[in-house]
Structure formats: C-alpha cells, structure tokens
Simulated assay, not measured.
Amino acid sequence: MEVIIVDTADEVARVAADAISALVAARPDAVLGVATGSSPEGIYDELSRRVAAGGLSLAGARAFMLDEYVGLPADHPERYRNVIQRAFVDKVDIAADAVAGPDGGSDDLAGACAAYEQAIADAGGIDLQLLGIGTDGHIAFNEPGSSLASRTRIKTLTHQTRADNARFFDGRIDDVPQHCLTQGIGTILDARHLVLVATGRHKAEAIHHLVEGPVSAMWPGSALQLHPHVTVVLDSPAASRLQLAGYFTETYAAKPAWQGL
C-alpha cells in the first residue's frame, strides 16, 4: 500500500487523475471503476479539464459503478446512475452506454447482482477502481461487519451511512433508501489497481484503521491491506491520525520517477 499525503483536496484530485491518465495513455480501452460521493468529484473535474485541453481522451474506455440505491425511480436525481452521469460522463468524452451500474430497480435483485458480476468478468475485470471511504470505514456500501470475501449483493444501510448521505436528500434521512446493491469487498479486491482518496479531518479515524489497523470486518476498508497495488491519496487533515505519516511523506518524496503510481 502506497500512502501519498498532500496539502489540499485539489492536489488529491490531481494525483488520482494522474493515475487514470497514465493508465489510459498505456491502454486506451481501459476498464475504470467509478465511485460517487464527495471525494471523487474533484477527480472528475480534473479529468474534465484534461479532456477539454486535449491531453486525455476516455472515448475508448469503459466504466463500472461501485453501487446503486434500491428502489429509486429511474429519473431520481440521486439515483447513482444519474449522479455518475452528471459528475463524470457529462464532463468527459466517455460514451454513456460504456458506463454500467447494478440495476437497483430490478424485480430480481439477486439476479441483477449476479449479472453485474458477470458483466465485470466479461469486460476482463477492472483495471483501476476509484474508492472513497465512509466515516465508519465502509468502502462502496460494505458496512462494518461485511464479509471480506463478499461479492455484489443487496445490503441494508446503517443509520450512520444514511445520516451521512442525507445531505444529498435535502437533509431528510427518511428519504435516503434503506437498501442498496453494492460490489462486495471481494469484488473490489479483484481490480488490478485500487486508488482510494479521502479529504478532511472527519475521515482521519477511518484512514488510520484502513492503513495502520488490523484487517477487520469492523473496518471494511482495512481489507485493502490485502491487495498488492493500492494507492491511498490524502490531504493533511485526513492523514492527521496516521502514526507513520512522516514515513509516508519521506518515501513518496524519494520515490523514483520511473515507478509511477
């Protein structure tokens, strides 16, 4: 696991966008994993600037979403497919039909989960998966207690996660769905490169457990310690609980340029 600590959220976005840009330059038909939430938005804005400037094209890429609410109507603005359309697809040159998500409106949710797993496999797997982390350590919608071997499935959202997400529903927690479809931790760990971004002091405790704690279902993000290629990009407040922050800063400063991300 490589931990990169920078000063600002804008720098976090640039570092993560660098990883995507390098991947697409080497493999124009790359398969990306995209995430919703506040943390990835700066990355999508940075990718948009690069596409507009002509230095990047995602026209040949494909993308898979991490999760989706269950039961929201197709036109609901907070349905994650619509959020990704606004935050990512509309800002770059990827084709809308090249972006897939689990079908939270299906009458057969178990079948929709199995079909999503198969679609990822048929695409050859995900090359680079973007991730954020919840204040309770969840990744995607894998809440504390989730199996570290889990696959795409239906999950019940905790009160804490619904409270965190109520800001997207005008502060009304009762409007936040209680269920979702989410890639499992095992599904996420199948991606070839994981890039997790976090900003703000409110993420510091979760980041401490992710990076320095024991691998535990109580802090689902800690499962990333088991992956051979993880990049964690943080601003200083998000890194404020790390005991090894000085070490991470030194090693990144001394990193050979040829190593890349």
Rank of each mutant, 00 (worst) to 15 (best):
70 V>S: 09
77 P>L: 02
216 S>A: 14
19 A>F: 00
23 L>R: 07
122 D>T: 12
258 W>Q: 10
137 G>E: 00
53 A>N: 13
31 V>Y: 04
202 H>P: 07
152 T>R: 03
168 F>Y: 12
139 I>E: 01
135 T>Y: 02
196 L>K: 05
189 L>G: 02
247 Y>D: 05
164 D>S: 14
11 E>D: 09
89 V>L: 00
66 L>I: 11
250 E>Q: 11
76 H>T: 08
250 E>V: 14
219 W>N: 12
98 A>F: 09
98 A>P: 04
186 G>L: 13
157 L>P: 06
70 V>N: 05
50 R>H: 06
80 Y>T: 06
42 G>I: 07
141 F>R: 15
132 G>R: 10
45 D>P: 01
155 K>E: 10
50 R>E: 08
145 G>D: 12
225 Q>T: 10
51 V>H: 10
11 E>K: 13
100 A>G: 00
184 G>L: 09
241 R>G: 00
206 A>N: 04
232 V>Y: 03
18 D>N: 10
208 H>M: 02
164 D>C: 15
184 G>Q: 03
19 A>V: 14
84 I>V: 13
69 Y>V: 04
126 I>L: 01
191 A>G: 03
48 S>Y: 01
211 V>E: 01
90 D>I: 10
2 E>T: 10
9 A>F: 04
124 G>P: 07
256 P>I: 04
67 D>G: 14
221 G>D: 05
72 L>I: 07
37 G>W: 03
32 L>H: 05
41 E>G: 05
71 G>D: 07
122 D>W: 11
90 D>S: 12
44 Y>W: 09
128 L>V: 11
207 I>Y: 05
5 I>H: 01
212 E>K: 14
192 R>L: 12
196 L>A: 13
140 A>M: 15
49 R>Q: 13
16 A>L: 05
79 R>L: 05
219 W>V: 03
164 D>V: 12
205 E>I: 08
257 A>I: 15
171 G>C: 13
74 A>C: 02
114 A>T: 12
233 V>E: 02
243 Q>L: 15
56 L>D: 00
233 V>N: 00
229 H>D: 15
88 F>D: 08
99 V>Y: 01
253 A>F: 04
206 A>K: 00
116 Y>K: 06
115 A>P: 06
106 S>A: 13
254 A>V: 06
137 G>T: 08
107 D>Q: 09
259 Q>S: 13
22 A>Y: 02
49 R>I: 07
2 E>I: 06
189 L>T: 00
209 H>K: 12
163 A>T: 14
163 A>Y: 12
96 A>I: 13
186 G>K: 09
167 R>W: 11
255 K>T: 11
167 R>E: 05
195 V>C: 12
107 D>Y: 05
229 H>F: 06
231 T>W: 01
